[in-house]
């Protein structure tokens, strides 16, 4: 009983900020108050009409779409190569491709900033997109690798024994069976890219900045609940995505939490 209460309390701790943000977002006054003195959607209106948020939202869509479109085929090819081919230095390549997971954001951001400055590419979407591709790739590769590892190579052998040449084997057997992994990879790519902040802060300008960077700037400069409204929209979208993902992909399998029953 006590144990259950502790777990509930801890989960409440995890959820508390979310609840507060949602409550704050419908607060009618500029000064935050609890309990709220009424209900108002004015901060949503302000958030949706604030020019810098609109520009940043467009940038987010461009950067996320472009980086997902690039990272998915690159990551799939890399995952297939890493799992299937007896590459020399396989450990090295895996480490290189997965390294963005462990490199601190400020180090990666500053490194990319210096590099972009050298190449004269500052204030360019290309740098931001390249940065996002690099950051998203580990997630794509991991999720596709899981699918590749679960793919019974006998199915591909069977197709070959029935006369399918390699490209046909890939088209008719490999690709359709990797579809769930590719879908998960796409989902991860979008979530990571949409939420990416630290590296983007370093390599974007007022013109190219994406939503999290614009939100950061807003929080630093203003205290009104507009940010709460934007955050609520963000949280809502995330909840929908995570719920859908759990239904479609059974997240506990993705995170290797098995049950003995």
């Amino acid at each position: 009983m006590i144990a259950r209460a502790v777990v509930v309390l801890l989960l409440a701790f995890m959820t508390l900020p979310t609840v507060v943000v949602v409550v704050a977002s419908v607060n009618p006054t500029e000064m935050l108050a609890f309990p709220p003195s009424g209900f108002s959607l004015r901060w949503y209106e302000h958030a949706l009409t604030y020019p810098q948020f609109r520009r940043a939202a467009v940038n987010s869509v461009i950067v996320t779409a472009a980086s997902a479109a690039l990272a998915l085929p690159i990551g799939t090819a890399a995952a297939l190569a890493l799992v299937r081919h007896p590459l020399r230095l396989r450990g090295f390549w895996t480490a290189v491709l997965l390294s963005p997971l462990v490199v601190p954001g400020v180090a990666a951001g500053l490194g990319l900033l210096i590099l972009a400055a050298r190449l004269g590419l500052l204030a360019n979407h290309a740098v931001l997109i390249a940065a996002h591709v690099i950051l998203v790739l580990p997630f794509v590769i991991r999720s596709v690798m899981v699918s590749v590892a679960n793919l019974d190579p006998m199915l591909e052998r069977a197709a070959a024994s029935l006369g399918a040449r390699p490209w046909r084997v890939f088209r008719m057997v490999t690709l359709p069976l990797l579809r769930p992994g590719l879908f998960a990879a796409l989902l991860f790519a979008i979530i990571v890219s949409v939420n990416e902040f630290v590296v983007s802060l370093f390599v974007s300008t007022r013109v190219t900045e994406i939503l999290p960077v614009a939100m950061f700037t807003y929080v630093v400069n203003y205290t009104d609940p507009t940010m709460a409204a934007v955050s609520t929209l963000f949280i809502g979208a995330t909840f929908v995505v995570v719920f859908a993902a759990d239904r479609l992909l059974h997240l506990s399998r993705v995170f290797q939490i098995d049950t003995h029953r």
Partner: peptide, 20 residues
């Protein structure tokens, strides 16, 4: 010669029926 040119029939232990 690669498998797909040999024209042999193979039945696998796991059957390897295409699930899709």
């Amino acid at each position: 010669q690669p498998a797909w040119r040999r024209g042999l029939g193979v039945v696998f232990q796991s059957y390897a029926l295409f699930p899709h």
